[in-house]
Simulated assay, not measured.
Amino acid sequence: MADMVRAAVLLGPRRIEIQEFARPPVGPDHALLRVEANGICGSDVETYRGHLGKATGPLIPGHEPLGIIEEIGEQAAKRWAVVPGDRVAVEIVVPCRSCQSCLTGRYQYCRHRAVGHGVTPLSVAPGLWGGLAEYLYLSPGAILHPVDKTLPAEIAVMVNPIGAGVRWACHLGGVGIGDTVLVLGAGQRGLASVIAARAAGAGTIIVTGLSADAHKLALATEFGADHTIVVDECDTVDRVAELTDGRLADVVLELTPMATAPVTDALLAARLGGRVVLAGLKGGKEVPLRTDLIINRALTVVGAYGVDARACADAIRIIESRRFPLAKLHTHTFGLDDTALAMETLGGEVAGEAAVHVSVHPEAASC
């Protein structure tokens, strides 16, 4: 076993450096994960660009890690029911497990959590808190989900984006049989929402994107969308009204990054008594909110934060079922040395690269 661990460190906007860290000892209540792959999220890209607030210090990004249990303490093995060699996906949130929120199943809102995967600065020992590294340190509060070891790593690592689709469309959006669902945004989580809505029995699924998103909109159709709307060529709300004979959408998912206008579109495109789920981060931008729309249309508006254990479990069932051709979502694999290029590729900054799902595999060469 190597004594040193290589990791990609975010030093500031667009500044990623590969550094080495001492391999931490593993106590009875802890574990060490050998990272097979870490998915790159749109929020990672915006953080890399410096759009989502200031980091509290240099850190190792990566909140979608998948890997193999390399070392584990006796108490940790009992708690997590895993042994060396098991493959697991790891949640971003590391709750305290003892406060009122944790004990009542609302651990995502734990006020006492001190660390989180991919968001904790190096100053918090042992520093290896992010998935963009050869190894990830697992503290006692970490939440793990076993995943089928026979799946390719680039598919198995999709637990977080597929889980987001499940949570936002089904758990928060309440999509049911026959519902009309509008998904604003055709990124990997928008496509995952199509998969989740189709699995839940939605009647009509509509997905929006830009003309530059033609490859993503084509995938949306392949995964079950009935209609796609190119928003820079026509009015979203008018087209939804046309497609639904004026009934509009039962459930609207607003997933667009940084853009503010789609929030109003979401409210206008929801039917009377409809449900709107807001999950697209805007980088702190002020969003004009037409509250009269919410009141007069009797809308339910829900904010979506992250992916919880229930959504992860449902996502793993979808992935392991092999029902959907998820390999078509994955477009790029990068090695650890090319982490910055992975961010830029997913962000559409690399000419000629039509990225959808991108992951970094610490032991792999870029391709």
Rank of each mutant, 00 (worst) to 15 (best):
A164Y: 08
D292S: 14
R87Y: 04
H171D: 14
P58N: 00
G187W: 00
G201H: 06
L329S: 05
L293A: 07
P24L: 04
P362H: 11
E242Q: 15
A153G: 02
E344I: 00
L10Y: 01
G203W: 11
M4N: 03
A218L: 03
I205K: 01
H117L: 09
G203S: 13
R239E: 15
A212R: 10
H330V: 15
E353G: 01
A269W: 09
D179H: 15
L329N: 08
L210F: 09
G178Q: 12
G105N: 14
H227Q: 07
N38S: 15
V183I: 15
V115W: 08
I68K: 11
I60P: 04
A55E: 10
L122D: 00
H117F: 04
P58Q: 04
V360E: 03
Q188Y: 04
M343T: 03
L59T: 06
L289K: 02
T244L: 09
G284F: 10
K285L: 12
K328A: 13
E349V: 06
I92A: 14
I60N: 00
S359Q: 10
A89S: 15
D338P: 01
W168K: 03
P25G: 03
G280D: 05
R111V: 15
A192P: 14
L32A: 08
S43Y: 06
L253P: 00
W168F: 12
T47K: 11
V263R: 01
K285G: 08
P325M: 08
T56A: 15
V5P: 05
E17A: 14
R198C: 08
D3Y: 07
V115C: 08
A199Y: 09
G187V: 01
L122M: 00
H332D: 14
V147E: 09
P161T: 03
I294C: 14
S139I: 03
E349C: 00
G246Q: 10
R49E: 08
E233N: 06
T260F: 03
T204Q: 11
L144P: 02
L33Y: 06
A2F: 14
L144V: 05
R15V: 11
E233R: 12
F334L: 00
V307R: 12
L278A: 02
V251C: 07
E70M: 07
V183T: 07
I319G: 10
G203C: 09
I69P: 01
L253D: 05
E74W: 12
P288F: 11
V26A: 07
V207I: 14
S366H: 10
H30I: 01
D232F: 06
G347D: 10
E222F: 01
S98D: 04
V240C: 05
E64Q: 08
G174L: 14
V307H: 12
H215Y: 12
G141Y: 13
D44A: 13
R111D: 14
Y107V: 09
A186P: 05
Q75R: 13
I92G: 00
A196C: 11
R297V: 00
G190L: 00
N296T: 10
G50K: 05
D314V: 01
G187I: 05
L272T: 10
I68R: 15
L289A: 12
Q188A: 13
V230H: 04
H227M: 13
R49T: 03
D29C: 05
I294W: 12
C110S: 08
G185R: 06
A218Y: 02
L299I: 06
A196F: 09
H145S: 05
V45H: 08
G105D: 13
F334R: 02
G303S: 12
G174R: 07
E344M: 02
